[in-house]
Nucleic acid binder design. Structure first.
Lengths: 372, 372
DNA sequence: TCCACTTAAGCAACGCTGTTGCTGAAGTGC
DNA sequence: GCACTTCAGCAACAGCGTTGCTTAAGTGGA
């Protein structure tokens, strides 16, 4: 009780401590990228002593996860040795199961894709056939790096689901998936650990872990395509909520007793925004999206709004400017949103598959969401 | 970068590990209340071994924070010894600085108030005078338990502020508080550690830690008084956002291009809701509040909505039923919100002062927000 | 009444963590 | 060439939770 559900089983013993600190170091190595980072900087970043960092990095080097990468210029003494992550020490597979296609990607530890496959997909087909196609894609990708360990498979799907037990819920229009234990089924077929999440959450995770992602902090990813959804990153972690249902942004009421939405409600952002798009009034669509975004910014006090999806990609400028205008106007009146940046996620749907792979990689770097 | 701001300095060494596990045990003891909890249950709740729990509880007993409290009935062997928290081992002071009054409360470790004082307050008076009044209240309360340690002072204020550095921002109508370093000033006057937060966050914290609080999980506290604000508890912790600004619920747009609000915006929930109240249409006010609450429930996938504040207190039933109706209607259409409970926080403003004290107590039990 | 059995809790030894203190390595600069 | 600075690793150490075992304190059947 008292919210302790998320804290249950949170006792820390020495192996857990060791794992935690190693993950922390790995995360800093990953963030440092190819440039690398010195032991003393790692010590400063973790609060551990330099000697502890030396021991931990020695273990990581033994495991092949880190290597030396040259020296820093001397500042009057022995120059610092630079360490960097070995990206191709381990890999992960990301799957994006969408309504009309399957994208599969093999990424290295740094999150970079090293192999991609795409195939058409009929979500209406029997589950077994869809699953077989997904498993085949996984096997093909694993063959791209035959002698390196693949940590697992991350899967991003459009519909509602339970992230904890890996079971789908009510994929709109495809009743055969309702209650389907996708995680267990795919884990059995591939022999690999499987993690499952919503597509918007995967995209948000990809952005949260992207190198040079314009700084970190809390942000929201708003995806405007055939629908409108959101992925939230709070405190550097994907916020999934109690039932993996967080991020239902599109059916936020923005116009009390407004026009009917496909969901049965009235005045939902999604309906208003897409209606404006449909009648060609894109600035109005952007303004509506901005109003929803501003609500979210005020409610959560986030630093950053990232827009994505096909509809946004069609006219990035109008959407970015429109959303930014609404947020800045509210901030200028003394409301929330001062200093919030509005940007666009490029690359279409590819980030979703990469984010799915990050579902597997995130735990390696200690980036575990609350629903895990 | 990459959201690691919240993870900086997160390296864990042995003292940190010890402190973490002790806090975890203390939190379970607190949650168990006067009934107590056995060592083996503590072991199960933390994931630690029974022997580790024995060692930790032995230290807590030495420090006077825990005591034995009888035996469980035997299940065929040696009966379990029950342990419970010693509530009056330590205390904390909570202050609620409101526009028209100062409420101060001394609470024990269990969060129960043992002494309360109230005094009128003029926030428009010079800062020094207000501060002197607050410091006096603290000293008077400390005298109520002369020989017990007081851990610190928690302060709840209405306006925007920065929780991290304890500085006020733009308290509406009282420009002399803009930028005032309340935490530092009060810490110097009282010689005690001081924590500062918004009143709605304090209320939410009080609810999150309340014994028998109808189960835990994520929830939102919606306060409808002269204004409308929210306190969010996600993952058992108060969500404050990057700048302690989270919870701006009242100026969420609910009616695009609707009536003008005092904030300068249009169609804010607060304006719509209070306008309906003013014209006597309370069911409509409740429906509007419910629409805003449903937006929040969908966005964050929370378990529970708690209503409070003077306006709600005037007609709890109408508000609870109205808000519940909107959330349930949306859930029934397949939207978010299934199983969400809507309840009322009673006790008027008293919980705010108690929640302020919990700002000091929360770290003892490992309940540290992200902004700390 | 006794004794076998069950369950809980503590003692002792242990492995392993990060820390401390110090030594050697590898540069700079007068 | 030597004094100084800075980094990195070795060795000893304190302290954490764990493991293995013993003792305590009940139940229940013979």
């Amino acid at each position: 009780m008292n919210g302790s559900r998320t804290k249950a089983q949170a006792g820390v013993n020495l192996p857990a401590l060791r794992h935690h600190n190693a993950a922390l170091i790995l995360d800093l190595l990953r963030a440092a990228g190819a440039e690398g980072i010195s032991r003393l900087e790692l010590a400063e970043g973790t609060g551990l002593t330099p000697q502890a960092v030396s021991k931990i990095t020695a273990r990581l080097r033994e495991d092949g996860l880190a290597v030396g990468a040259g020296l820093r210029p001397s500042t009057g003494g022995k120059p610092r040795t630079v360490l960097r992550l070995v990206p191709d020490a381990q890999f992960a597979v990301g799957l994006h199961l969408d309504r009309d296609g399957l994208t599969a990607v093999l990424v290295d530890l740094a999150g970079r894709p090293v192999a991609v496959t795409r195939a058409p997909l009929d979500l209406g087909a029997p589950a077994d056939r869809v699953l077989a196609g997904a498993a085949d894609a996984v096997h093909d990708l694993c063959a791209a790096e035959p002698h390196k360990p693949v940590l697992g498979v991350g899967v991003a799907v459009p519909g509602p689901l339970d992230h904890r037990d890996g079971v789908l819920r009510r994929v709109t229009g495809f009743p055969q998936w309702d209650g389907y234990p996708l995680r267990a089924a795919l884990a059995e077929r591939t022999g690999l650990p499987v993690a499952l999440d919503k597509d918007t959450n995967a995209a948000a995770l990809a952005l949260a872990l992207a190198p040079g992602g314009a700084g970190g902090g809390d942000f929201a990813y708003l995806h405007l395509g055939t629908g409108l959804g959101a992925g939230l990153v709070l405190g550097g972690r994907v916020h999934r909520g109690a039932r993996t249902g967080a991020g239902e942004f599109g059916h936020q009421t923005l116009q009390l007793d407004g026009p009917l939405c496909g969901c049965g409600g009235r005045g939902c952002v999604e309906a208003l925004c897409l209606a404006a798009e449909a009648r060609g009034d894109r600035p109005e669509a952007a303004r509506i999206l901005g109003a929803g975004a501003a609500n979210l910014v005020g409610l959560l006090d986030i630093d950053r709004v990232v827009l994505g999806g096909r509809t946004v990609a069609a006219d990035e400028d109008t959407y970015v400017r429109g959303v930014r205008a609404v947020i800045e106007e509210r901030a200028s009146r003394g409301g929330a949103g001062a200093g919030v940046t509005v940007t666009v996620a490029r690359g279409g749907d590819r980030p979703v598959a990469e984010g799915a792979a990050q579902l597997v990689l995130a735990p390696v770097f200690g980036r575990v969401g609350e629903g895990e």
